[in-house]
Amino acid sequence: MPLSSRHLLGLYGLPKSDIKLILDTAKSFREIIERPIKKVPTLQGKTVVNLFFESSTRTRISFELAEKRLSADVLNFSASTSSLTKGETLKDTVRNIEAMKIDMVVIRHSAAGSPHYLTTLIDANVINAGDGSHEHPTQALLDMYTIREKLGKIEGVNVCIVGDIAHSRVAMSNIFGLLTMGANVAVCGPKTMIPRDLEKLGVNCFTNIDDAIKFSDVLNILRIQLERGAAVNFPSLREYHRLYGITKERLLKNKKDVLIMHPGPINRGVELSSDIADSSNSVILEQVTNGVAIRMAVLYLIGTRIEEEK
């Protein structure tokens, strides 16, 4: 059974069967990754462009590795949106690369909706690698994959995402995907970081971290970034750590054995203390490995759709 869509733009509205298919496919690729020869010829002859308008070495490397392990021809294009004129960038760049006869585009862009816009400009299949505060579907898929591996299921699992939910594409994709898969989803953070009306989606909103820990089987901790000026929605990193930092004492106090996830890179001592980041509860490094398998699965499933389209 193929995916229901020829692009992966986000997890909002993506059917459960698609998510399950991606996770199941990733499982077999996860096994391939453990083999001495990690390469399969699945995407031989296909050209994939990694179109990164926002620097993200980690995500790009993960995609590139996945593409190469599937034997695709890989083209990397990086451009900072600031160095070029805003809108012209995407349209002109994309028209140019399409002339090179490409099959798939992996796009990372600071503007929400750019991957959708891209689908109106080109015929190639589009994979969203993060767009503004909108979605980062492959990150959420790898998070769900990790949960399923560790806990044996997603349905009924209590997952809480901690951090700046309002500005996090990782949070939004996780919320959409987890809800579809039947998890109990919560978020935790200062009220200024929780989008208005989020409960309408069926998400529990905690402002107290102890309540969040008591609720959770899984804590997905987001990286806290410092903004400037009036956009700052919390007083200081120190205060954030004091109120929301996940520490060993905090977990012990709540007598909780929880799975600790983090999309990386970690701000040690801010959202997560080192003792927890490196503890047996933490699956942060496994997430990275699973990320490659998930991206292989997505590329494979979309790449094989291309054959059917023809």
Binding site: H134, P195, R196, D197, L201, A230, A231
Partner: peptide
Amino acid sequence: TVNGVMNESINSTILGLPP
């Protein structure tokens, strides 16, 4: 409304657009 581009609602959250 700094950077805001669409009505603040559950839709702005779903679309990831500044409210």
